[in-house]
Design a protein around this nucleic acid. Structure first.
Lengths: 121, 121
DNA sequence: CTAGAACTTCAACATTTGTTGAAGTCAACG
DNA sequence: CGTTGACTTCAACAAATGTTGAAGTTCTAG
């Protein structure tokens, strides 16, 4: 019962190219997200990025959140409480997921409200 | 039973300043939307814009749609079937509102799906 | 009729969200 | 150890979505 997702420095980590291939997100976008604090990575002795267990989740979140109108700044704030460079715990996700669902649903509700007011009945 | 919202050229129409004051949308944004086909207006003999019964609805829609992640191009396409320069009929709105609610909800659903996959249980 | 507020267009600028390419460095295979 | 593909940074460009300001025109109240 000890699902340990903490950083293991024996593990090599994913290169940016591998992450890109697995996620479908361009390397330029991945670097951009990292430069803006939405992702983090370790560096090899030679200064190359190595990503860990959280990166695929974060990328999926970023894409999905953008589709419902969150800016990258808002996504960054949402992701900020997650531990960097580790797969987040289920508890981490539960809190975050709830926040995002609520926010997204409230935006939908506002649109619905506008639509109802404009097209009553 | 003859709710006629067709253009009455006796009616002066709203100036861009009046529309801005009533809607809270900056005149620069209103001109921008019009330049991009989301709004239309008549012109006075002196080339000033005069807006009609559809403009407040359209502005409300634009704001609400942007909040749920639609681009202006998508909003333009959504608004395109509405008659220009007139208050749309309830039927117009019903069709449009349904389309938008569906689209927005499907984006939320995609986010929820991602969240569920990432945080199962 | 005239003054001043409100309007016009146009160009420049700003922010967000990236992409592209150049020039150079690293890593992994043979 | 050398080659080659993948990586690094940095700067320039790009599209979307506006804002700001200049220079000039129109509208309207008095």
């Amino acid at each position: 019962m000890k699902l340990d997702t903490s950083f293991d420095w024996h593990e090599p980590g994913l290169t940016i190219g591998e992450v890109s291939r697995r996620s479908g997100v361009a390397t330029s976008a991945i670097r951009f997200y990292e430069a803006n604090g939405l992702l983090s990575s370790d560096r090899t002795a030679g200064n190359q990025r190595r990503y860990h267990g959280d990166v695929m989740c974060r990328l999926a979140m970023i894409e999905a959140c953008q589709r419902v109108g969150l800016t990258l700044a808002e996504v960054r704030d949402a992701l900020a409480p997650l531990p960097p460079r580790h797969a987040p715990t289920p508890e981490d996700w539960k809190v975050l997921a709830e926040r995002l669902r609520t926010e997204a649903q409230s935006r939908i509700d506002q649109l619905s409200q506008v639509l109802r007011e404009l097209a009553p009945q």
